[in-house]
Design a binder for these strands. Structure first.
Length: 505
DNA sequence: TTGTGTTTATGGTCAA
DNA sequence: TTGACCATAAACACAA
């Protein structure tokens, strides 16, 4: 693999290596940091933070005192983090933003040719890209799948959704698609739902998430420079948005109750692995993917017989299985990596699924356009939560917000002036995706002023207002605008224990 | 031809 | 220093 960035050569490389983002190929401020910061971590991070869009700087609300060095002391720069170079082929929400980007171009911040060409021997890249979001691919993929009305998406849809949510995946950088495919194939928490059971080798299948196999540790925000610049922007943990109240236990599963499916579950890779069975994800009625997905599906969604779903027949290689062995996992519930996969166990196993109307064809990515019926479903059955990313258009409506964040007394209704629809660039995320949300009309012109009052949008800060011993799901309140979606009561923790996804950071 | 899915290889980061 | 793990790149096969 080629090295994307040369080693720092100007100043304080050690300090930067300690405090800055190591993924040099992900981030573009290293050079700036090298130029401006003394060999001190905090300063280096401050320097890095200077590249946040100015509207983000205004929105830096409440610095967490427990991590003084992890956050900039103050952010004064108006230089956009992502605004310095307009990527060729990138799509900004509107021309105004594009103009702003042109104005703020000062030096290259993209990982592109120019940077690579400065390194002797470095392989030249013909792409530029934004800093990677501080979430693993698994988390992002899971999120877009779980927020889909039917909890399953084709690859092209996944790519589309991810690229919509995260500016990192815009522009001419295409390698992330490989990573998405790689993750889909590698993590066994992703289930391939065959479009045509008669064609197990067919393409364009759906991908779903088996929540019980999701390594929870990978849902946490990663410690990247992007996240360090303002820890309040990105949610600390995507688990609530992916699990959506599903309790994922780490202890060994209880003896499986009678199967809830009508057809054999074609998920077993190893028909007789006693040792593995100890860690095999639950297939009981509560946590089996069949049950989970079925229960999670909004009532308005087409009633797909998920009992006919089956795990893909792929024989996964032993090594890159990436299953659930998170490094510091303390509550990971997924099974350990499969140690022995028999190809024959999987070949010929075809999941079955009732094809939906209009889903027979394959979806191309570039010319992706959701089927009409799917768009309609999306408009009417979008999940009532919102993504806890900096790109979030609005807040999770069902979460409890502090009084300052409430709107007419409602939970997490947008503040006056709307919510900070900020992305990496200077431009708020234009309302163009997952429209139909009841909150959108409240947003002024679909935009949010850069002067919007500081606002905490991430779940972690919201949780600060949640009473002790109450998880966010304890206070899930169906709202009018989401009356079509009623989280299954068995998955809302009415009085149960904390979701152990909220450690005291 | 393009998209999809799988697999392999390798670099970077982090914790032990 | 080493191993585990994630990210990335790329090759390959095959279906659409």
């Amino acid at each position: 693999m080629t090295k994307h960035w040369p080693e720092p050569t100007i100043s304080a490389p050690a300090a930067l290596s300690h405090c800055g983002e190591h993924h040099g190929h992900h981030l573009d401020f290293h050079r700036d940091a090298q130029h401006s910061c003394p060999p001190h971590c905090g300063v280096a991070r401050s320097s890095a933070a200077q590249h946040w869009p100015h509207h983000l700087a205004h929105m830096v609300p409440q610095q967490r005192l427990e991590k003084p060095t992890a956050r900039p002391n103050h952010i004064t720069s108006t230089t956009g983090f992502m605004d310095k170079t307009a990527p060729p082929g990138s799509d900004y929400p509107n021309q105004q933003d594009a103009n702003f980007k042109q104005e703020t171009i000062s030096q290259g911040t993209w990982n592109g040719d120019r940077e690579k060409s400065s390194t002797s021997g470095a392989k030249k890249k013909n792409y530029q890209r934004y800093p990677k979001p501080p979430y693993s691919y698994l988390a992002m993929i899971s999120m877009v799948i779980q927020r889909s009305p039917e909890k399953k998406l084709t690859l092209s849809e996944i790519l589309k959704e991810i690229s919509t949510l995260f500016p990192f995946f815009k522009g001419n950088y295409k390698g992330w698609r490989d990573s998405v495919r790689h993750n889909l194939s590698s993590y066994d928490c992703f289930l391939k739902v065959l479009k045509d059971p008669g064609k197990p080798q067919g393409k364009g299948n759906f991908w779903a998430v088996e929540l019980s196999r999701v390594p929870l540790e990978l849902l946490k925000r990663q410690n990247t420079a992007v996240s360090r610049q303002d820890e309040t922007i990105f949610a600390q943990d995507l688990a609530p948005y992916i699990l959506q109240g599903h309790k994922v236990e780490s202890e060994p599963p209880a003896p499986p109750p009678p199967p809830v499916t009508h057809l054999p579950i074609v998920r077993s890779r190893n028909p007789s692995p006693p040792q593995e069975d100890l860690f095999r994800p639950k297939l009981d009625s509560s946590f089996a993917i069949d049950s989970l997905l079925h229960s999670l599906r909004p009532p308005s969604a087409s009633d797909v017989d998920v009992s006919c779903w089956g795990r893909g027949e792929r024989p996964r290689s032993p090594r890159p299985c990436y299953t659930s062995t998170a490094r510091s996992a303390s509550a990971s519930s997924a099974s350990p990596a499969s140690t022995s996969s028999s190809d024959e166990d999987w070949k010929g196993m075809s999941g079955k699924r009732v094809p939906l109307d209009g889903e027979a064809g394959s979806d191309g990515y570039e010319d992706y356009r959701p089927p009409l019926h799917k768009s309609a479903r999306r408009d009417t059955s979008a999940p009532p939560w919102e993504l806890p990313t900096s790109y979030a258009k609005y807040a999770p409506p069902n979460a409890v917000a502090p009084p300052s964040m409430r709107f007419n007394g409602g939970p997490l209704m947008p503040l006056h002036g709307g919510l900070p629809l900020y992305g990496y660039g200077s431009s708020p995320v234009a309302p163009g995706h997952f429209l139909g949300h009841a909150y959108w009309p409240l947003l002024p012109n679909g935009r949010v002023s850069a002067q919007t009052a500081p606002l905490l949008m991430d779940l972690d800060n919201m949780l600060q207002s949640v009473p002790p011993n109450k998880s966010v799901f304890d206070v899930l309140v169906p709202t009018n605008q989401n009356s079509h979606y009623q989280p299954p009561s068995q998955y809302t923790l009415q009085s149960g224990p904390h979701l152990n996804r909220y450690p005291q950071y």
